[in-house]
């Protein structure tokens, strides 16, 4: 199952994109309560938003972005645009998903 939930809605020539990503966003400073060991950092570093293959936004995140991060942005577009979101984390994991703008 995809880690990304994405919604894109057009109104008056502006598409609003809202996305939720399932990710632990571990800072590397938290300790495992049972073992007392540090939980290694694991967080998304880069998110790219595209519309019809063109880059709209490039996002850099640090470990201070909340767990299961939320992102919203807007761009000049139309209904039916293919909106695609891709993320990459510090371990090199990645996922992407696309959605037609409504």
């Amino acid at each position: 199952m995809s880690t990304i939930k994405i919604r894109a809605k057009e109104s008056k020539g502006i598409v609003t994109v809202k996305a939720l990503i399932k990710h632990p966003m571990e800072t590397g400073k938290r300790k495992n309560k049972k073992t007392g060991e540090l939980i290694p950092p694991h967080y998304i570093q880069e998110v790219i938003g595209q519309a019809n293959g063109k880059e709209v936004i490039k996002v850099y995140w640090g470990p201070a972005v909340s767990k299961n991060p939320y992102l919203t942005f807007k761009y000049k577009g139309e209904k039916g645009d293919k909106v695609e979101l891709t993320w990459v984390d510090n371990k090199g994991n990645r996922d992407s998903k696309n959605q037609a703008a409504k």
Partner: peptide
């Protein structure tokens, strides 16, 4: 006051409207 002050950065193309939203830890 966060251990590392920069939380996030957003680079916009000419298509993007200058507005962003997210959730951060403090």
């Amino acid at each position: 006051n966060n251990p590392q002050p920069l939380s996030s950065g957003y680079y916009l193309s000419s298509l993007a409207e200058p507005t962003i939203g997210t959730r951060i830890k403090m």
